[in-house]
Nucleic acid binder design. Structure first.
Lengths: 230, 230
DNA sequence: TCTCATGTTGATACACTGTATTTCCCCACT
DNA sequence: AGTGGGGAAATACAGTGTATCAACATGAGA
């Protein structure tokens, strides 16, 4: 046995902390989706045994919460724009961009209350944008409505994106590519409005579709903020 | 050995079909949540070995899709109301009610495109409600916006409901009950708007909160349908 | 009626999972 | 030098989705 084939020393354990664990989990999820995140694999990335993680997190669900909160830090813009509308729009778009960077976020978004520091900061930013422009109850309703919209919209967008990817990237001919199933369904004549929609609808890219719906919702909010002059 | 203690004959296998499988899975999920649905347990409910299911479904994901589609049948109202607005509102509320009956639906809602017969029927109903009132592109945008809203709102509502249930049913004192964590966070003064919201906000029940936001979104849709007279 | 093919059913197997419990080893302190 | 004690690792367990394989009941053909 020479120095060269002498086995590696047992890899002195790297000091661990939540940040490193969460970062490893996020990396794993970015590469292979949420289902690729297992405590064993996260630990392996950190040259640690699986059980070591339990000194820092108490359950896998908690790890997911931490991952979400970590990504929510990317959502906060460096500086808040003045206009409430612009502020809310930017927050929505940045959430969407975060979800496009980390598709697994779509699986977690809205799945549980966001009580981490960054999640609270996002909510704070949303509420702050409306500060002084409406009573607190209206502001809450507005924030909840807007975020319900973009949460749902983002989830659908990612879901469609995955479906397209799975059926071999098809864009316009969604119905043909997804296989004969939907086409056959539409051909039954039981869904005339839907058939017309997929046939005659002009397909717009996901971003403008997101933006348009968002603008509608913001219009609705605007109407509640400044009551129409009597 | 008498007739009485003679062992049961090996339980002639009950004929199976997708409907029975899906029904068993839904029952399991209603009782113990989505995570209680395992192919083994579903099969056990039907006096079958786990592998038998693979003659009818090809993967667990597919079973989930079938469950969602089955529940979506509950969403379609027996008769469509005349007014487009009422029609969309009813569909949204019925979706919410379905999610309250089957909380696991919140975990699946929006997670993948709803391409089953009932899912298509729901979309058809939504589109049909707007038939003739707008060009097809506007109708699509409207339907997508409304359903993005209520998808997101339902998910959040269920998430909060579960969180409340977990921390020992707390209603108003959300911040105290959830534990010192959030309280401490709010006390830091880093979230003034949020602090004011939880402190001064009047808490309304989930249903009216859902309905209010929905009305706002429907207002927005209405504004796009009938362009303001020039 | 006997035989054989066929196709459905159940058993077994595998590679994982999250997590509880047990073992072990290294380091600081007496 | 001995001896705790504490943190890391190994092991263990009950479960998961699904592939593979063996058995068997049932139909057709002779």
């Amino acid at each position: 046995m020479t120095v060269w084939d002498r086995p590696e020393p047992p890899a002195r354990p790297v000091p661990l902390d939540r940040e490193r664990i969460v970062a490893a989990a996020i990396a794993l999820a970015d590469e292979g989706g949420l289902e690729a995140v297992s405590l064993r694999k996260v630990a392996a990335r950190l040259n640690a045994g699986p059980m070591r993680l339990y000194g820092y997190i108490s359950t896998k669900e908690e790890l997911f919460d931490l991952m979400v909160d970590e990504v929510q830090a990317e959502i906060l813009p460096e500086e808040q724009p003045g206009d409430w509308r612009e502020a809310l729009r930017v927050l929505a778009h940045r959430t969407r961009q975060a979800a496009l960077r980390h598709e697994w976020l779509a699986d977690l978004l809205g799945g549980r209350p966001t009580l981490g520091p960054n999640g609270l900061a996002v909510t704070e930013a949303e509420l702050a944008a409306l500060d002084g422009l409406a009573d607190i109850d209206t502001a809450i309703r507005a924030v909840e409505t807007v975020s319900a919209y973009f949460t749902g919209a983002i989830r659908r967008e990612i879901a469609n994106l995955r479906a397209e990817r799975a059926t071999g990237l098809s864009k316009r001919d969604w119905q043909r590519a997804h296989g004969p199933h939907v086409t056959r369904m539409l051909a039954t004549g039981r869904f005339p409005a839907l058939a017309k929609a997929v046939h005659d609808g002009t397909d717009v890219d996901a971003e403008t579709s997101f933006a348009t719906g968002l603008d509608w919702v913001l219009d609705a909010v605007a109407a509640k903020l400044t009551p129409p002059p009597a």
